[in-house]
Amino acid sequence: MAVHAHPDDESSKGAATTARYAAEGVEVLVVTCTGGERGDVLNPSFEVPEGHEFTSIDGRRAVRRLEMAAAARALGVRQTWLGFVDSGLPEGDPLPPLPEGCFALAPLEEAAAPLVELVREFRPHVMTTYDPTGGYPHPDHIKCHEVAVEAYHAAGNPDRYVVDGGAAAWEPSKLYYNHGFSMERMRAVHEAMLGAGLESPFGDWIESRTAREIPEREVTTRIQAAEHFSQRDDALVAHASQIDPQGFFFAVPRDVEIDVWPTEEYELADSRVPTTLPEDDLFAGVREAVR
């Protein structure tokens, strides 16, 4: 179970991993906490699908549901919605208040309750989500982390989140945090691009992150996923309102990426089964335990 804040996050964080496991026969469920209703158009070539509009909250939600369905098909995974409304990314100094009724303002137990029920129904052995920083300081990403961690720890306790007629308690075996663009990865790809005489998209980013002294989190688990990068790319492009097919995500030639960085990285946050670090499989320890 991969828990994400918005539609498109599942395609930019761990997408090739989910596609790999789905191809291997693992049941994979992507849970999207919000409808992405407050996301701006980030693709200059985006055209609103016929019969839709993208100016209202309801219109954006409908379009992004179409995009999410296409991305899920590209990855070969199942997907469901937690049902909360996008909080938007506040900007300014001071920051404006978050909109009433948004995901980030929901009390933790209210926000976690539907995810706890999903965990009990789907019965995942492994859950993935964001680290406590959210990966970046979007309020929905931080809330997504809090909700996923709460569900991971609470779903196995039959005395918590009691629902008449609800599914039986279920305790997942492992919890991981996604690692996105780590400094190690960016430096490796940056140097490879320069070495090939190509313009690197990471130069300014490396300098800005270093200047802000953003700490690197531990990588415990590297998943070989290069064979599924094309599915990841197809899923990204499916989010047409958000992803520019000529933009940042496609600035590194795939042959360079596969040669330099063919893996996706994770941080093991909790394990209820024995495992040895470093790992190359999210199900290390789980496979032995369920035999």
Rank of each mutant, 00 (worst) to 15 (best):
R212N: 14
G247H: 03
F283W: 10
G83Q: 03
A112W: 00
A269W: 00
I142D: 00
E10R: 02
C33G: 02
G180P: 09
S271F: 08
W205K: 13
L198P: 03
H52G: 02
I214T: 14
E37Q: 13
A211C: 11
L118C: 07
A62D: 14
E91R: 14
V63R: 02
S271Q: 09
F54P: 00
E191I: 07
G51K: 12
T275K: 06
V147Q: 06
S173T: 05
T34Y: 05
S241T: 10
Q242F: 00
N157T: 06
M127T: 04
S56F: 12
E91Q: 15
D164V: 12
E100V: 10
A23G: 14
P97S: 08
P7Q: 13
A2T: 00
R60H: 12
V26L: 11
P172Y: 04
S271W: 09
A151M: 00
P107H: 07
W261R: 12
L75H: 02
P245G: 04
P215D: 10
D164F: 12
L115H: 00
E216C: 05
A168H: 13
G59D: 12
A155S: 15
D270M: 05
D40S: 14
G76K: 10
V28F: 07
P7I: 08
A225H: 03
V116E: 05
R217A: 04
R160F: 01
I243C: 09
G247E: 06
R185S: 13
Y266Q: 06
I223Q: 01
S200V: 02
E207Q: 15
A192R: 09
I258H: 05
L268W: 08
P132H: 03
W81N: 13
L66A: 11
R209A: 12
A70H: 07
L95G: 10
T133K: 09
R287P: 06
P94G: 10
P201L: 07
G88P: 09
L115N: 00
D40V: 08
A225P: 01
T18S: 13
V163R: 15
T221R: 02
T17S: 09
P201N: 07
R64H: 14
T17W: 00
G165L: 10
R64E: 13
P49E: 09
F202V: 02
I57T: 15
E67S: 07
L198S: 09
A69I: 03
F250A: 07
G285F: 01
T210G: 13
E207K: 15
D58Y: 08
Y266D: 05
D8W: 00
R20F: 04
R254D: 14
R209C: 03
P94S: 11
F103S: 03
G195V: 04
D244S: 09
P124C: 08
L236G: 00
A2C: 05
K13L: 15
P99L: 01
E27G: 14
S173Q: 11
G51I: 13
V163W: 11
R232D: 01
V26G: 01
